[in-house]
């Protein structure tokens, strides 16, 4: 499946019922140099829109919201150890968490690449 985006600048890539989630390249650029990442524990469940993680740059702290509901099945501790990775490869190696979806239909409400580009250009 192709990558989808939330209005809070998270990206979501579904593989079966597990989604890999991170922050968009646009968000990483806006944040500037990332110096701190806090990720949830595996096993925790979130409803869509809940505060799920924290990312801080030299400028400010930002919440990362769950773009879909479900249970955390894996977290990327590499970005906790090396937050700068979030700037280097935000939509690749620097993914944040993997969530087992509880409601796959929530994916339909997310934007595709073209729609997100439009959206990010305006925000």
């Amino acid at each position: 499946m192709s990558v989808k985006y939330s209005q809070d600048h998270e990206w979501v890539k579904a593989d079966g019922d597990v989604c890999t989630i991170g922050i968009s390249a646009h968000a990483a650029e806006q944040l500037g140099d990332v110096v701190f990442v806090e990720l949830p524990d595996t096993g925790k469940t979130f409803a869509k829109g809940d505060d799920m993680a924290v990312v801080e740059s030299v400028k400010a702290a930002s919440d990362v919201y769950a773009p879909i509901s479900g249970e955390i099945v894996e977290v990327n501790s590499a970005i906790v150890d090396e937050p700068a990775k979030v700037n280097e490869d935000p939509q690749g190696a620097a993914w944040f968490v993997k969530i087992k979806m509880s409601n796959a239909s929530e994916l339909d409400a997310l934007m595709d690449e073209a729609a997100y580009k439009d959206f990010a250009g305006q925000s």
């Binding site: 500037g32 140099d33 110096v35 740059s57 030299v58 400028k59």
Partner: peptide, 12 residues
């Protein structure tokens, strides 16, 4: 100017 293309970290 809050930052230039190098970014806050590199400028610092």
């Amino acid at each position: 100017p809050v930052q230039y293309p190098a970014g806050v970290l590199k400028e610092h």
